[in-house]
């Protein structure tokens, strides 16, 4: 009890009991120890001369990066178009794949909680755990470099994201209208299309547009592993130490991200 009576009958108040206090202290101590340990492991191979030299390096590169080479822009339009296409087509493909997965996962629509749901959940987890860049790395070795690998990488990463949010939305629907549609003698696909789907369309549209926005960002870097888009130019410019081109590419990426964020905010606002 935080409030205790002392021998002379006064009431003493402490925020926590002594046992809780000790536990908290032990928890914090463990965290600090963990940090110190991991810090030492991480930095044992660090060459501190490089680290100390970093500010000078940064100043040096900074001076080379400015001004951006604006004339390089003419070579960036095509990669930019590819980047946007990778994001858009990838999201589209992901949406098509994610909808059935979401229905198989949601407790109230899955055909079997014991057999089908765990498999669908596994699909979602695998897709979500692995970054688009890693998917791209795999796909480039299989499909060869290019936009196609990028589209599929984006799609594979997004399936889990969209399916997870969508199945959570499906589990939260109001069950009464679904019962009502079932009571009219509608078939199972009709119950899905008339009772459940209209209830999740706002969530569905919002999630898809949100993911498209994220995918635009991700698509800008997929080129680093050879999957097409503006990242290819970033990679080659970095390799040839063409710093003014790097600056321009970063500016273009930043602008694209800001525009896509604005577009997605507008669309989501219009939908809700």
């Amino acid at each position: 009890m935080p409030v205790s009576l002392s021998r002379d009958g006064d009431r003493h108040w402490k925020r926590r009991t002594s046992r809780a206090e000790w536990l908290r202290f032990a928890g914090w101590l463990a965290l600090v120890m963990l940090f110190i340990f991991t810090w030492r492991v991480m930095t044992q191979d660090t060459i501190w001369a490089f680290v100390l030299d970093a500010p000078r390096q940064a100043a040096d590169i900074g001076s080379r990066m400015w001004p951006p080479r604006w004339s390089y822009m003419s070579a960036l339009w095509k990669p930019l178009w590819d980047t946007i296409n990778m994001a858009t087509l990838g999201t589209l493909l992901a949406v098509i794949l994610a909808v059935p997965v979401a229905f198989l996962t949601a407790r109230n629509t899955t055909p079997s909680v014991v057999f089908v749901r765990p498999v669908a959940l596994l699909v979602i987890v695998s897709s979500r755990s692995i970054n688009a860049l890693i998917w791209a790395l795999l796909l480039v070795t299989i499909l060869g470099p290019g936009v196609l690998a990028g589209v599929i990488a984006i799609a594979l990463r997004s399936v889990g994201f969209i399916a997870k949010l969508l199945y959570e939305a499906i589990e939260e629907i109001n069950i009464e209208p679904v019962e009502a549609i079932r009571a009219t003698g509608a078939s199972a696909p009709q119950v899905l299309a008339w009772g459940i789907w209209p209830q999740i369309t706002p969530a569905f549209a919002g999630i898809s547009v949100f993911r498209w926005d994220i995918n635009i960002r991700e698509a800008t870097v997929l080129g680093l592993v050879g999957a097409g888009g503006i990242g290819v130019n970033l990679e080659s410019s970095m390799n040839t130490l063409a710093w003014p081109q790097v600056t321009l590419i970063l500016i273009v990426i930043l602008a694209t991200v800001i525009v896509s964020e604005w577009v997605s905010a507008k669309i989501r606002h219009a939908l809700l």
Binding site: E176, P177, E179, A180, I181, W194, G195, P198, Q199, T201, P202
Partner: peptide, 8 residues
């Protein structure tokens, strides 16, 4: 609770 599909 009427059980209508609100968005239709």
């Amino acid at each position: 609770e009427y059980a209508l599909v609100d968005r239709l």
